[in-house]
Amino acid sequence: MDNKLYVSSSPHIRSGNTTRRIMLDVIIALLPTSVAACVIFGFRSAVLIAVCVATCVLLEFISRKIMKRESTIGDLSAVVTGLLLALNLPVDVNPLIAMFGCLIAIVVVKQMFGGIGMNFVNPALAARIVLLVSFPSAMMHWVTAWGAPEAAKIDATTSATPLAAEAGTYSYIDLLIGRCGGSIGEVCAAALILGGIYLVIRRVISPIIPCVYLATAALMSFAFGLDPLYQLLSGGLLLGAIFMATDYTTSPVTNWGKVIYAVGCGLFTMLLRTYSNMPEGVSFSILLMNILVPLIERMTVPRTLGYVKKAKGEKK
């Protein structure tokens, strides 16, 4: 035989799943939310999304070039980051501010720490928080959503977010279909839930993190005397629980780790919502739990098959 054979280590077959396919699924899952954003806040939402996605991809390309590393824009992770960041912004934010956010997300948080899989916090969330702290008024300027109730209006163009508004201003239906103020991607609860169901069916995410996160938040609201359903449907909780807290790189890989992480997210979210000056606590609580992930994972190494606990005094 004269032709050369491939000789490699087993296994010799691989599943068809790829990183690119997973990222594509996340993009598909975010489509209903993106479309809803365009309907609710108009054409500017589409421009904002396009600006963020394009900037993220471009910055990813440039930073890999500068570091003389293989380009990774093909895995679509930069698209996901750009899309998530855009969905976390108010619709009338200055595009330059949005682009600055992309710089923080892709260059500082992601590529400076080694690129995909190496960032210790969620890039889009970290960027959002940097923007929130740097440009508080621009980042909390909530343009009135299409069809939002009159009572929520603050002035001619803006209205209160569900968490800031007085009780009874918004109905559950308003929250579900997004007739309320907020970031372009967080207002329409129905679209977010639809995306979440798609991700679970496609087995892209395990339902543990979103379910435990939401359950903890609901229990806490109940304990604080708040309306649990209203709390779940308002603010960035669904967007955070379904799309941000489930980010692979910054959430635990073990099942019990996921539970602890999600409980932590739920606790901090409700504590911040109730006691801090900020009306919203989702971003901060996920970021905080992101940092704890290595510790949580170390605590929750699963018991391997056949593991026998060493008796006391027995030498290792």
Binding site: H12, N17, I22, T254, T304
Partner: peptide
């Protein structure tokens, strides 16, 4: 079928953890 798969960076998706029949953490 023979062509070797080109590895890329681990994204910590945890699929290896759920697939491991011995309940190990392959990525770690």
């Amino acid at each position: 079928e023979a062509r070797l798969a080109e590895p890329s960076a681990c994204i910590r998706c945890g699929k290896c953890v759920s697939a491991c029949p011995m309940r190990l953490l392959p990525l770690e």
